[in-house]
Design a protein around this nucleic acid. Structure first.
Lengths: 140, 140
DNA sequence: CTATTACTTGGAGTAAACTCCAGGTCAAGG
DNA sequence: CCTTGACCTGGAGTTTACTCCAAGTAATAG
C-alpha cells in the first residue's frame, strides 16, 4: 500500500503516487476521464488525497481490463450521485465476474504451459533430431 | 476443446477454428508472425491441422498478454530447431510466472471490488445524502 | 458465356491509449 | 534583471493490432 499524504499535491507528486506520468494525468483530464483538477492561483493543478485515491482506484479498474471509455462512464455515474448507486453496483459486480472468468482462463493456459514445459524437459533430456510438434502443438 | 479436422483447410476454415478473421491470418503472415502458408495450385492458402494447432497455441500466448512481437520472437526460435530449446523453455517459464503474478494481482483487485460492493450495500440499505468517498475511495 | 463465390494483393484507414513538443507563464534564487 | 525549474496549452506524432478496400484471378453453376 502506498502512503498518500494528506495535503494538496502537485501534478508531479500525483503522478508518482498513481504510477502515471504528468502527461497522462493531463490527458485523462482532457478526455474527461478525470474531472478538471483544481488550480492554484498561478494556474498549476493540485490534487487532494481523495482525488489521488480516486485515480488509484480507477487505475485498478484499468488494470483488470476496463477501457478508458468504460472508466469514464463509471466516473460520470459517480458524479451523478446516489441515484446511480445500483447501476454502479451492477458494473462492479460485472467486473468481479469477469475477473473470475479471466482467472479461470489464465489457469487453463497455465496448464497448457505446464504441459509444454514437460515436453521441453523430455526433449532436453532425450534429444531428438526433430522437435516438431513440441513448440506449436496444443495441449487439449 | 475444438475439433481440428485432419485435412488441409481453407483460410476460412482456419479462421473459424482459431477465432481469428481471414484478414488477421493474412496480416499475421505479412508481419512474419506466422510462416508463409502453403498454397494450392490456384494460389489460395491452405493450412494443415498442425499449423492450425500452432496458431491456436500462439493465440493462447496472446491471451495471457504476450505481444505480437514477442510471439514472433518465440516462433522464430522454434523455427531454428533444437538448439533454441532451452531458450524457449525459459520464455515459457517466464510466461508461467507472469501469469501467476497476474492471477495474484486480479485477486487483490477482487478484494477491493468486494469491499466496494459492501459499501454499495450499506449505502443502498441506509441511504445517505452524500455518497462521496464510496465510488472512488480505495480499499487498502 | 456470364455470374457468383472464394480467394488473392498492396495499401490505406482506424481505434485506443498514450507521448512528445513548441511556445508561453510564473515564482524563486543569485 | 536574468535564469532556472515547474508547470501550462494545443496540437501533432507514435505504437499496437488490426480492419477495410479496390482491383484482380480462378474455379464453379446456370
Amino acid at each position: 500500500m502506498i502512503e498518500i499524504p494528506d495535503k494538496p499535491m502537485t501534478i508531479r507528486e500525483a503522478a508518482e503516487l498513481t504510477g502515471l506520468t504528468e502527461d497522462t494525468l493531463r490527458y485523462y483530464e482532457r478526455i474527461d476521464l478525470l474531472p478538471p483538477a483544481e488550480r492554484r492561483p498561478n494556474g498549476h493543478r493540485f490534487y487532494t488525497a481523495e482525488q489521488v485515491q480516486s485515480i488509484v482506484f480507477l487505475m485498478k479498474l484499468k488494470s483488470i481490463g476496463m477501457t478508458l471509455a468504460q472508466m469514464q462512464q463509471f466516473r460520470k455515474l459517480s458524479d451523478e450521485g446516489e441515484s446511480t448507486l445500483s447501476e454502479r453496483k451492477a458494473i462492479i459486480e460485472a467486473c468481479y465476474r469477469q475477473v473470475n472468468e479471466e482467472i479461470e482462463h489464465l489457469r487453463s493456459v497455465q496448464k497448457v504451459l505446464e504441459y509444454k514445459l514437460g515436453r521441453y524437459d523430455e526433449l532436453l533430456s532425450n534429444p531428438s533430431p526433430d522437435d516438431k510438434g513440441c513448440d506449436l502443438s496444443t495441449y487439449e
